[in-house]
Design a protein around this nucleic acid. Sequence first.
DNA 1: CGATCTATTGACACTCTGCCAAGAACGCCT
DNA 2: AGGCGTTCTTGGCAGAGTGTCAATAGATCG
Lengths: 206, 206
Amino acid sequence: MGVQRQAQRRRMEPDARRAEILGVARRLFGARSYGTVSIAEIAAEAGVARALVSHYFGGKRQLYLEVVRQMMVVPASVSERLPPTTAEERISICVDRWLEVVERNREMWLSAIGLEALGNDPEIDQIMLEADEIATDRVLEAAMMTDVSEGREKLRAMIRAHSGMLKAASREWLVRGALSRSDLHVMLTRTVLHLVHTVFPALRDG
Amino acid sequence: MGVQRQAQRRRMEPDARRAEILGVARRLFGARSYGTVSIAEIAAEAGVARALVSHYFGGKRQLYLEVVRQMMVVPASVSERLPPTTAEERISICVDRWLEVVERNREMWLSAIGLEALGNDPEIDQIMLEADEIATDRVLEAAMMTDVSEGREKLRAMIRAHSGMLKAASREWLVRGALSRSDLHVMLTRTVLHLVHTVFPALRDG
DNA sequence: CGATCTATTGACACTCTGCCAAGAACGCCT
DNA sequence: AGGCGTTCTTGGCAGAGTGTCAATAGATCG
């Protein structure tokens, strides 16, 4: 199978070793599911003893959580330096930047949205929840609706629900190829605007 | 822990035994995650030897797939006997029935939409995909758009993307309580109509 | 009541994980 | 350069879970 290198042990800085193992873990967990990836495999590919992985991360589960955390990082650049024009224009730009990020980190994004044990695992849920909150803030900022007070929670919930559509639409684009990037751009932009400008007032006042 | 019953073995019809085991598995997999449920536990609660579970289902994984299949069944009643009025009215009824089903099978639905290994596991994906296709047919039927030819695949992809929002919105309703049932009703109905009547033409002609 | 069928079980082999003491590489001080 | 402590790294052990198969026992039929 793989080439046998690393005949003798090499001592490394903890941070470097940790990063090396984490990199391998991210690649493997990204490519296959949790249950089918073993610590032994990660250790082998990192050229390291199996026990060392547990030593650095405390166990398989915690290593996995670390990988998930890294994958869910939403780049702040998506909603930075937006021109002070209409909400439509700003959201359009925001969506476009986001699609750019997704296209570049294709595999990582697909792994992140197809995570295991969603809804069953409190810690995974917590991580995803925090990521969703950040993403929601970005959208509201772009839509210039950070200052709504009445029905604020309903609005945020709607944006989170919309991110569910975003994830499903991403799969349609990247995996099935049923939608193009510009299709997603149109659909996501219009849907956000529709939710914010039409549906939200109906919920708030109804 | 559990009461020790079933001191002696009882021989049952294969179908009955199979159904009994499947019932226990559905309950346990619905309540906790795949990795934390063991075959031994399922066998114990079913009052049966561990090997019998493997005998009937061929292994833990296949038993799990069987459970998933059962959970994803979309009742046909949702889109049956819809009155021949406007698309708005029909979709509104359809959404309402659907919310009724979800509310009744709360735990099962939450388990189903929070499945493990989504996007990593071809067989799980296949099951979810088939379920999505059926659900899409139901929606298009309600919207009276079963006969579109141009851009048919784009339209279906959009509906599938919308079901991603539906799932996320369900979580907001059932888990977080940030949205009410009537909120979902309004949001989902209006969003489907917006996608079908406004966004879809833009994609098709753009 | 005995023969037969097959649902059911106990046990074995294998894989994977967490854990711990022993070993080896590196930096430091004289 | 050489010895020495630090700590990075490893091999091995115990426990848990799974798949498999021959053996067992409950039900049915002549």
